[in-house]
Design a protein around this nucleic acid. Sequence first.
RNA 1: GGGCCCCUAGCUCAAUGGGCAGAGCAGGAGACUUUUAAUCUCUUGGUUGUGGGUUCGAGUCCCACGGGGCCUACCA
Length: 585
Amino acid sequence: MARGTARDGAPQAPVDWVTRAADDAVRHAEQGGWTPESGRPITCASGASPSGPVHLGNLREFLTVHFVADELARRGLPVRHLHSWDDYDRFRKVPAGVDPSWADHIGRPLSGVPDPWECHDSWADHFKEPLVASLRALGVEMEEVSQTERYRAGAYREQILHAVAQRDRIETVMARYRTKAAPLSEAAESAEEAAALADSVANDGDDGNPSGLGATNDLARFPYKPYCRDCGRDTTIITSYDDDSADLAYTCTSCPFEGVTNLRTQDEGKLVWKVDWPMRWAVEGVDFEPGGVDHASPGSSYTVGKELVKLYDGRAPSFVGYSFVGAGGQVKMSSSRGGVPTAADALQILEAPVLRWLYVRRQPKQAFNVDFGPEVVRLYDEWDALGRKAADPAKRDAQVLAFERASATATAGRLPVPAVVVPFRLLSSVADVTAGSADLISRIVREVGHDHDSVEDLEPRLGRAMTWTGEYVPESERTTVRTEPDAARLARLGDDEELWLRHLLDRLPDRLDLDETTTLVYGVPKLGRGLGLDDAPTDQVKADQKAFFKLLYNLLVDADRGPRLPTLFLALGSDTVRRLLTPPT
RNA sequence: GGGCCCCUAGCUCAAUGGGCAGAGCAGGAGACUUUUAAUCUCUUGGUUGUGGGUUCGAGUCCCACGGGGCCUACCA
């Protein structure tokens, strides 16, 4: 029953992970009393911390949710893609390449740290903005929520008070999932773990200060953390909490501040992550939310959250864990981006549907690489082949379904693809020798048999092929056209060679045509043997052709081999060819 | 300690709720006036890491083992 045809003989609709995740989301919503008529949307949620460049691994969070939400929209169901920016998280560490003085901001919310590059209002915005732009190009539409705004607006005040009131139960749950600490001797083995150990020792010291051991443990595991009113950092230690007044007293370890914040009237902190996440599931009514596999491990946030959400009378959303996305090939490093490729980087070389395809065609738990190297060519070839297959309704299977999901969305329609599809390989190799002129590439591509009206017909692929060729193809793989004639080589030409070049230059027209140039290039050695341009080659001529071609490659691109000569001639133009084949005067 | 992923052609990888093991590259043959790095056609190549199990049927599900990789514990 798994496959084939339904009872009436009609082909069964293909099913993929998106279909199943969407089914799960619907089921989850229905269990919560939702009906399509309720007018309430099914909520698919994503979340991300804008602590650094949003790289291709983080992109999976957004796209996984997007595809599921899009599937629900295709079914005509009310749905929303809710995205939470965890910009109220603390700034943890100063990445390489940033002024070390930013260490002063560690502990402050990401939305409160200035942008070292000075182009945005905050650290968080600096990384949010480019990703949002990329997502727009990818056809992802979502409702964005800033956790800074929500917390500061007191949106979660009630939930915070509830968590604090229930802190013993929270601790019980957390403790259940906490496994035994690693033996001290092993923990001290690595430097990192030694540092962690030092931290825990320091914390033990802190614990000794306030009165009462039981109360201390209680406060040490407090589910709420205030940001210091004076310096804005979360380096606060709670010294007391009064359940009746909701007064929370704390001291700051990085500034002299000591004070009291009231959880009922003031909004100066946040719930700890493992409570924060399930709290939002309940508040927003989340039906589907994926997570990195790290969140799905036992004892990790999803597992714990599944229990804690009950405190809020909520249910954990349906979940899929996704694996990591790596980068392959020669990835260009960028200091301001920390060297990890982002969606924007990928979109410079991949059409938006192709990038979407990478994420939708594999099951979430499968890890994959986005390759910026030679695999790009193959990727486009496969994509084009799949596009041809998708044009035939009889061949609609799971692969074609992935193609459809990648190509268009329910709300934004079809994403931009070239009007005239030319193999990426061809665009790239022509771009390689044309010194970046789109018009010239267009002309050559037309000559070679891919007719089109204008350069625009080749976009958005052409620009990406040019970028890829220029920035991601290693120098050793590229064709380097000589800038000056090889005077030394031209000075010691053999008799045959001199004759060939003379024949060639005598007949080389100012405006090159592909067919004529082909005939000429192959014909020159024939002339040298007393044959006509159109005569069939003899074995002797074939040997001559080989030597002649090598000579031309030597003189034009300083190599023994290269792109097909007729194409190369067209790319270089008659003048350049003439100049490189003529001894300088 | 716990968990996850991977092992398929020489190489890189597909096969998406069990249903005929497939591509690309490389190799071979050929076509296009062409023994060239943009074209096209055909073709070689497999005990799916090992050993068991479930099933009419297993790359796919279960158990064990070997090898490789990743995550996780205290924090968010």
